[in-house]
Write a protein that binds this DNA or RNA. Structure first.
Lengths: 179, 179, 179, 179
DNA sequence: GATGAATGAGCTTTCATTCAT
DNA sequence: AATGAATGAAAGCTCATTCAT
């Protein structure tokens, strides 16, 4: 829906504290009343946004599932830079710790996300693309933590992700995880 | 100062959006007016909090500088679980993207923090405790990203950091970084 | 609108410094939020009040345009005494020097007001009711300054405007301006 | 005293609504506490300021008492433009209507001021410099009203007081009041 | 004689929410 | 299906005032 997209853009642009219903509605071309017409209240809208974000996130990851780790990371970084998805996710995650409803959603979907990643890594361990001396679920945890950390810093320390530096980081990663 | 401590606790408890001057003042046993007496405005208070947080964070890292990577990570995770420092940092970092003043502070102090970590890793590469086929500054980046990612998820997915699981993760880490 | 009327009454009663949105809203039977619903902010409300005041002021002057100078002044003084218009104007004028937006409105409307007055005086110069040895625009300036001065003092020195004294002042005025 | 001077300058610069004790104290190089040390409260300070302003105003008028009407007005206009006295007076007068203590002071000193002006005009009527067909006290009222009106508009409509226009206005005035 | 810490009331403004239409 | 008027609570902030030192 239009409103969800507007909410994501607003979250990415203004942060959670700055994402008022007013702003969201205005960006979508509605009045504030419309938002509370479609959603019971703000919390409900935010919850819908989170689910929607995860759907989009999962879809993107699915679309690059066949690629190698390095390629996947590059594609993921491109999404970070060019879409509001990850930034909005980050803002909502920061809020999730103080809203049980959000926390529940994140716990559930994050677990599923990491399970899939573990499966993918297991595949690559079988084909010999990734080291096998560490269980796949642990590696999935290591990698997703690193990804979270980078997405967290992307807009605060942009220099850290300049193309050349980024390549070096990914080369390093390859070495860390190669058999 | 009392107010800084109260601000950190409030940030950790209520998040950035919920950390009003009123709440901070009340927790410290002051009235709202006292906060604006000591700080020109909220932005100034937040900036003071950030600097203070980094001072404490740095002090803690300094105190465990001599230990091995594994020990350092364990101590760092203990701090995450038992102190408000990291949670408050996370809340402020989420806001930093939308407040240039904060962003500037984070950029400066984060760079310094990662530089020190790289020096420490270089030491351990020389003593043969850490693999040397990847430059120390890249490894510092990998590790700090992972640390950021974990601190980000600590309160949302507590199960991910149950003692047994945590040990496994750290064993995995050791393997990733050992020569 | 109700709010504009309430604002004018509040300005007249409490002065600019004492005319809070709270008071205005309360007098109009609204909550404070209603004021900021109709006006973007206080400055916008004040600007709307000023334009409204001038509209009413102009309408009154128009309604007495056909009368002689003496009659016009008497009618104008009656308005001063019985309506909040002039007192509110005075309060806002005092503030205009420190708010460019207000200053601009006053400059524009005052110029128009004095231009009309000059036209009226020119008419009376042609009919021989007012002396012609001084240009009409200068006389308009003299008279409007006097009117401003009196409206300024009306509520501070009420004795100065007791009926008998007032008549004497107007007789004097007639002599000053008669051919 | 330093504080009185600072208060006058602040009133002229920021208007009554903007003249906080903070600003006054700061301009005088004191702390806010010092103001309430010297004066019982804000009202008392304002009252002291008003008396001081009148003293200075009277002193200035005394110093030009011997000059002709036209000269006196020119000197008075110069004071308006170059000193804070008249502007501060104006701001306080606007407030006087809502503070009985101020109103009382203004009533008393304004009466005295106009009495002296009437005496001076009487002198000039005797020497034949001013028309005698209107009683001096009425003329004093007419002139002081005009002066009030001009001082009120000086900073709002500066164009109205450009040198050339001003001269024309004063020539007109001379004609109005000449025998 | 003057400061500096602190208060508490009040200010403008923003916001989520309600509800008649 | 959606608007627009209005609310009421809470926010950041300013201010006059108090008082121990």
């Amino acid at each position: 829906m239009e409103l969800l997209r507007a909410a994501i853009a607003t979250l990415a642009e203004s942060g959670y504290a700055g994402a008022s219903l007013r702003k969201v509605a205005q960006r979508a071309g509605f009045t504030t009343g419309a938002v509370t017409y479609y959603f019971a209240n703000k919390e409900a809208m935010i919850a819908a946004v989170v689910e929607h974000l995860w759907d989009e996130y999962d879809a993107h990851l699915e679309s690059i599932a066949g690629l190698g780790l390095n390629r996947r990371l590059r594609s993921w970084i491109a999404m970070n830079a060019n879409s509001d998805i990850v930034e909005a996710q980050f803002q909502l995650l920061a809020q999730a710790k103080h809203e049980p409803l959000l926390a529940e959603i994140y716990e559930r979907r994050y677990a599923r996300y990491r399970k899939r990643m573990a499966e993918r890594i297991l595949d690559q361990q079988r084909t010999g693309d990734i080291r096998s001396d560490i269980p796949a679920d642990l590696l999935a945890d290591h990698i997703s933590a690193m990804a979270d950390g980078w997405s967290m810093m992307l807009h605060v320390e942009p220099k850290r992700f300049a193309p050349r530096r980024l390549s070096a980081l990914l080369v390093g990663l390859d070495k860390l995880f190669e058999p």
